[in-house]
Amino acid sequence: MSSLPPPGPRGFSRRTLLAASATGLALLAAGCTSSPTEQREQVTGEQADQLLGQVGVQETLVAAYTAAGAADPGLAGEVAELAAQAAEQLARLRAAAPGATPSAVSPGTPPSPGEARSWLRAQVATAATSHATACVSQSGARAALLGSISAGLRGQDGRLA
């Protein structure tokens, strides 16, 4: 039976890599799309339509970052990294959704500069919830992508609090 190590780095067992990081490395090597069957990667018409809908949700969020930054220039600088990440998420969604084309969307505008942050946070939370809901009814790499994006937006939500 293995026992917990004594205090200090010299006492830690070397027979097992820290599983968390090892798991991450193994997953990188295997890739997240290596399903034993291809069924999970087959897209029903309903799933394809839903994925296109999530592209629209993300386009709206990217536009919301622009609108919030326009209303409050100070906020624009503060959330530039978050906005870039939202754009990266959008690019990944478009790549995963056959037939997705950029569309003009309007998230509206913040009610006032002073409320731009809370307005933006609400937009982020709404998008995260939408992607999470879609994730559960998708499968394979699409579910993984939507789940990851939703989790990333939950992290953004916390930063905007």
Binding site: S148, G152, G155
Partner: peptide, 9 residues
Amino acid sequence: PVTRALPGL
């Protein structure tokens, strides 16, 4: 950055 666009992927 403290946030990630695609955590876990």
